[in-house]
Design a protein around this nucleic acid. Structure first.
Lengths: 126, 126
DNA sequence: CCCTCCACCTAGAATGTCAAGGTGTCTCCG
DNA sequence: CGGAGACACCTTGACATTCTAGGTGGAGGG
């Protein structure tokens, strides 16, 4: 299958795409599902949109992640037609997924805070 | 070699150690070296201290990372005695390492900002 | 002299992401 | 009606990074 994609698709992804930090995808997905069930394609677009096109999730990352989350019991899904009348799986948070989301986002906060402390030594004076 | 370590060593690392986000270690090392040359052991302690014991770098992660950074020309080292009169390698930033640090920390900022936007939908109302 | 801490290192497993490819269906447009 | 393109699902294999679990040798204290 040809590599060439429609020209306007390339616009934002083009300029040096930033790889996702390994370990953050689960958090992003859980958080995105917090507002209600979504299918895979919609999750990607949500994340892209809300991150202002900084976070671009590949399908090859997304689906393994979704299946991982299912295996761990943090999300479930049910089939149903999409807004465009296509077959789709709507993924939704389970109760334990909500707990996990809290844990993960706590971890993220601590982590990001710690890195921020290291990155900003300038203002260390009281 | 026995697994048992001195009891007080376990205190902070014990309670659910958080894995480093993959890809952040280079940034942390570069930033830590920004203030001057340090040897490996000191880098670990710097990071631990300044992160308030949130970020704990394993030696098995540190040394591969240091060698990686050397290969890429971002740091160099010279041998010399440590404060404790032991053989040590003092790693220091190169010019291109400084540039890389700027790049990496820019990437981090964008990334962390994007994730923060996703994590905080609550205050989306103007 | 033995033990511990320091300071260096490596090999192998585990993990997660990405690049690249593949299926089928729906809709629009010529 | 036929093709193009978006939508929505998926998998495989390569890759990079971190962690676990070891290993060396020397300094200093008891």
């Amino acid at each position: 299958m040809l590599r060439c994609m429609s020209p306007r698709m390339a616009t934002r992804a083009e300029k040096e795409r930033i790889a996702l930090l390994q370990g953050t995808l689960d958090l992003l997905i859980l958080q995105t599902l917090r507002r209600g069930p979504l299918h895979g394609h919609a999750i990607v677009k949500e994340i892209e949109q809300r991150s202002e096109a900084v976070l671009l999730v590949e399908q090859g990352s997304l689906y393994p992640a979704l299946h991982r989350l299912i295996r761990r019991g943090w999300i479930g899904f049910e089939e149903g037609p999409s807004e465009n009348n296509r077959r789709a799986k709507y993924y939704r948070l389970t109760a334990s997924g909500k707990k996990q989301l809290a844990i993960e986002s706590g971890k993220w906060e601590r982590m990001a805070g710690a890195i921020a402390r290291i990155l900003r030594p300038a203002e260390e004076k009281a």
